[in-house]
Design a protein around this nucleic acid. Structure first.
Lengths: 124, 124
DNA sequence: GGCCAGGTTGACGTGCACGTAAGGTGCGAC
DNA sequence: GTCGCACCTTACGTGCACGTCAACCTGGCC
């Protein structure tokens, strides 16, 4: 898959893909100068974009990706990656809870606003 | 409440509070040059900080705060704010779902990593 | 009056995640 | 051959959310 196909498929720019590569988040093969993205690269990009939506930094995402990466597996590295992953998971769980609470509050506020609006309109 | 008491209570810096004020997120009263924060200001700051944790921009937060603000209530403004709030809520719901899925995947990956680690250790 | 802690306002600096412009390369179509 | 297009690298620019620093009040205490 060329860089353009990747961009079209994921809705990102070439600049973004090259930037991710410079930060060691993606490692496409090279045919001469051209980048070629494999199925694994597409899976990684999916994870990267998801992580970004959750507010994780590219560096945090890079560390998480090590957990998915079967290469360079030794005990200390895996243990470090596991520790980082557990911390991220705890963050995500707290964020998940707080997001649920915030959604409830926002729904309540919306309902209040709608009620207020209907009262105003029925008066008129 | 002075700026220092606010900072201690919310774990932010004076710079942050003045910055929020410059972006019209907070409107503390003035006793001479000093800022004085009311109960309403503290409630607004709570909402601001929560919004920030969910990745909303300060501008988005400012628009949402209009929904909470009982001043300057007219129909078109409230309807616009309600529309924005519904869009944000939809974003939050999607983010909530995706975050749940990502947590499941990450838990699975952690379990895999732990299993692999235990196998390696029991071999040794 | 002297002085200091704590407040104030700009103005500039920083880290992140890219965007953008400049100039060069490879390659198939005509 | 050369035109055009897509790709490449390098370097600088941008927007956001603040941090940092300089310079200046201001009230309270000795």
């Amino acid at each position: 898959m060329t860089i353009r196909q990747m961009c079209d498929a994921f809705g990102v720019t070439p600049r973004t893909l090259r930037f991710y590569e410079s930060r060691e988040l993606l490692f496409p093969e090279r045919r001469g100068q051209q980048r070629l993205y494999s199925r694994a690269d597409r899976a990684r990009l999916t994870l990267i974009l998801r992580g970004r939506r959750f507010g994780f930094s590219l560096e945090q995402i890079r560390q998480l990706l090590e957990l998915y990466d079967p290469a360079e597996r030794n005990i200390t590295q895996t243990e470090a990656a596991l520790g980082a992953a557990r911390e991220r998971l705890a963050d995500m769980e707290q964020q998940h809870r707080e997001l649920g609470e915030a959604m409830s509050e926002l729904r309540q506020q919306i309902a209040d606003g709608e009620l207020w609006l209907n009262n105003l309109k029925s008066d008129a």
